Amino acid sequence: MKRIVIPILSLFLMGCGDDPLPRPKGYLRLEYPKASYKKTNIPLPFSFEKNTLSDPIKAVKSTSNAKGVDVKYPNLKATIYLTYKEVNENNLDSLLRDAQNLTQKHTMKADEISSSVFENEKKKVYGMLYEVGGDAASQSQFYVTDSLKHFLSGSLYFYAKPNYDSIFPASEYLKKDIKHIMESLEWKKFNFYK
């Protein structure tokens, strides 16, 4: 009887330990290649450096008063849409208001919209970057201008239903590209700064 009771008692004693704890949820780990940038050669009055992960810029879209290019990222299912308009003495306020209103249209779905001022005195590039949190259609918007001749606005869109948690890693990666576009942007053709 001792032979049976001792092993059974030892099993009970060994089984009484810490309470089991649930394992933490696993998170998807997405890694994107380190960004490598190359200067664009486009027939517009500005140039910038774009990530080599994006498709080559092939065509320039044009309307009567606006021109632009699309920087496409097929692997991330996203595009940064760039629209250029020439500034004249009467339209700078209107261009600024339109760019700001475009960002404000996302407030219905956005959890937050933060803004940061951008200034590059040497290249005469001044603007604003808006970062949109939440399930908004566009996660980033920006505009830059020299206040005299040039105005460029940009928007980041994904080819998917906006689910902030799902697109967050790609959005963060592309925000860095947007910042690099703003930092590397140079106006062309006009020599009135010298």
Rank of each mutant, 00 (worst) to 15 (best):
S116R: 07
V87I: 07
W187I: 02
A99M: 05
G134H: 04
D98V: 04
S140W: 00
S153N: 07
E183S: 06
K194N: 10
L148Y: 08
M108N: 05
G127M: 00
T145L: 02
V144S: 01
K124I: 03
Y27S: 15
K50H: 13
E131A: 01
Y143L: 05
E112I: 00
P74Y: 14
K105G: 01
Q104A: 11
P56I: 08
L30S: 14
Y27G: 15
E186Y: 08
N51M: 05
G134I: 01
L9D: 07
K77I: 14
S115A: 03
N65D: 15
L102Q: 06
S54Y: 12
S10W: 10
I113H: 02
R29C: 12
S94G: 10
K72W: 12
Y130V: 00
I167S: 11
F48R: 01
L82A: 10
F158K: 05
G15L: 13
D70C: 07
K105W: 04
N41P: 05
R3M: 05
L96C: 07
S171E: 09
K109T: 02
E49Y: 05
T83E: 15
E131P: 00
G154R: 00
K77W: 15
F190R: 06
M108I: 08
K25Q: 15
L148R: 07
K58C: 14
T40C: 08
G133A: 06
F190C: 04
P20C: 08
Y126N: 06
S147G: 04
W187S: 02
F12D: 08
H150G: 02
S116Y: 02
A66G: 08
R29E: 14
Y32W: 07
E131L: 02
I8W: 11
L11Y: 08
L21I: 15
V71I: 14
E119I: 06
Q141H: 08
D55H: 13
I181Q: 02
I178D: 02
Q104R: 08
F48N: 00
K109V: 00
F48L: 10
T145R: 00
S62W: 03
Y81I: 14
Q100R: 09
F190M: 07
D111S: 09
A78I: 12
T103R: 01
T52Q: 12
K194C: 03
K2F: 12
E131W: 00
S147N: 09
K188R: 11
P43C: 12
D111L: 06
C16K: 09
D165T: 15
A35T: 09
V125R: 00
Y130S: 03
A99G: 06
T79D: 13
V144W: 01
N120C: 00
R23S: 14
M108Y: 05
S10T: 12
S115W: 01
N41R: 11
S115R: 04
M14Y: 11
N101P: 00
A160H: 13
A137N: 10
D177T: 05
D18A: 14
N163Q: 11
P43E: 13
I4H: 04
G15C: 12
L102S: 07
S155W: 02
F190E: 09
R23L: 15
D93L: 12
F158T: 03
